[in-house]
Amino acid sequence: MENLRTLLKEQMNIDFMSAVLSGPRTKDGTAKVKVRPLMKKDTLFFQLEIFRGNQAFHKNLEPEAAAEEVLRFMQEMRQMQMDTRAASYTVLVSKKGKVTIKKKMRKEPVKMVSMSHNRKKQYVLEEGTAVPFLTDLGVMTQEGKVVHARFDKFRQINRFLEFVEDILPELPKDREVTILDFGCGKSYLTFAMYYYLHELKGYDIRIIGLDLKKDVIRHCNELSEKYGYKKLHFLEGNIADYTGVDAVDMVVTLHACDTATDFALAKAVGWNAKVILSVPCCQHELNRQIKNDVLAPVFEYGLIKERMAALITDAIRAQYLEREGYRTQILEFIDMEHTPKNILIRAVKTGKRKDNQEAIESCENALHITPTLGQLLDELRGAE
């Protein structure tokens, strides 16, 4: 770690712009750390924003102390992306603690960042920089200004890209990465993924968007062709029946309705997808099934029963993914355009299966439920 300590002490100065530490080695503890410079009473500090669970904690430290704190956090992380006015750095830490630093010089230094304590939030896709697909989708003007009525969509896209940013250490950089987006709809987030991973991060990626709406698929393909996104394609089709690929690195399923999410998750497990990002929607299945004598007074209220059934659906899904060898988190997203659901299931393949089958069965028996995902995964196991 000494080469990283030297880099931090050299670069954490007035020209430092930002850093993001991601790729936690364990599912408990710190999920991500963001670092930015901060000027207080003419003294340079560095603010560390530390994300644990659904909470964020802040520390303001002087340069030397900040460098040591970042170094300490890098003992827990796999990757850091650091930007200064003159260069960008990618820091990778192997399982054995070997540190690899990749440096890319800028053609010309960028403007000095604002160091105001209350400065405007920094987004993955910045305001003021026109992004073609955001312009065509009505989120930005030609000058890069976010349309006021679409600011929630802009925030949602950036929040989603933060989740993608966190899993970058899981995606290979030495070959083509295949991503499948089930139920892509108008594809705001599909285009955002392609733009971020290919245009900004330089990944060789192929993204396939799948949806049942013929006119939406046609429009998305027209936009993809217009932008020259040669490996972004949209197909009309059903999640349950799709067999167009043999291997997938990452599966995304956003607001796939009811059990369509289960079919997408089962497909992902069958492909041994390294990463799964899923925002479920309209979980009706367990709401029709759920029964429990102790909870009967609570279930008399339809709204309460519906919400509890939705939460239980996603928790059971997460447990099944853990059983299949995924490190799984349930995270808070931003409300989707057509649904108040704001949960995102993020799963990363580790190969370490959780011994939780008995616990899952006890829960299902107590609630008299038979989730589709469990049946689909059991069928997969039977076919192995």
Rank of each mutant, 00 (worst) to 15 (best):
K274N: 09
Q283N: 01
D181I: 03
I369W: 11
A192H: 09
P24R: 01
V110I: 15
F160V: 01
S278E: 02
F182E: 13
E10C: 13
A315G: 07
T350I: 05
Q156C: 06
M336N: 12
P37M: 06
L168T: 00
A309K: 08
S278M: 05
Y242E: 06
C257S: 09
M39L: 11
I239S: 12
S116G: 13
M193Y: 05
T190V: 04
M77H: 03
H117A: 15
K120E: 08
T313D: 07
L265D: 01
D42H: 05
M12K: 10
T243C: 11
F45V: 08
H58F: 10
V99L: 14
K274Y: 07
E162M: 04
H338A: 06
V20E: 03
F160C: 03
T100W: 03
E108T: 08
K107L: 14
T100C: 07
I334C: 06
L44T: 11
Y227S: 01
K291S: 06
G270C: 11
Q81L: 13
A87L: 07
T84P: 12
N221E: 00
E68S: 09
L380Q: 10
A247P: 09
R78I: 12
V33D: 11
R155Y: 13
F133S: 09
D136K: 10
N221W: 03
H117P: 10
E285V: 06
G23S: 08
M193N: 05
P340A: 02
D215A: 04
L21E: 02
N158C: 06
L286K: 01
A192V: 06
V348S: 00
D293K: 15
E127C: 12
T30G: 00
E285N: 00
T84V: 06
R155I: 14
K153W: 08
W271V: 00
N238Q: 08
K352V: 03
L168C: 02
I360K: 13
S94F: 05
Q122E: 15
K98V: 13
I316C: 11
A31G: 04
Y242A: 11
Y194T: 08
D215G: 01
L8V: 00
D241N: 09
N13G: 15
A266M: 08
L223F: 02
F163Y: 10
G270T: 07
M112R: 12
K341F: 15
D249P: 02
I316Y: 05
G382V: 13
V147Y: 01
R106L: 13
G138T: 04
T328H: 05
L286E: 01
L200W: 09
S187N: 07
F299G: 01
L367P: 02
A65N: 11
R25H: 12
P172M: 00
T372R: 04
A264D: 01
L125D: 05
R150S: 08
C282H: 10
T43M: 10
A65G: 06
K111I: 05
L168Q: 02
G97D: 02
K186A: 11
D249S: 07
K173N: 10
A309W: 12
D378K: 15
I239G: 10
K153D: 13
L21P: 03
F182R: 07
N342P: 08
R5H: 15
R78C: 09
K9F: 15
L377K: 04
E236W: 04
E68F: 09
A315N: 04
P132Q: 08
C363S: 15
M112F: 14
R175P: 11
D241E: 13
E162T: 10
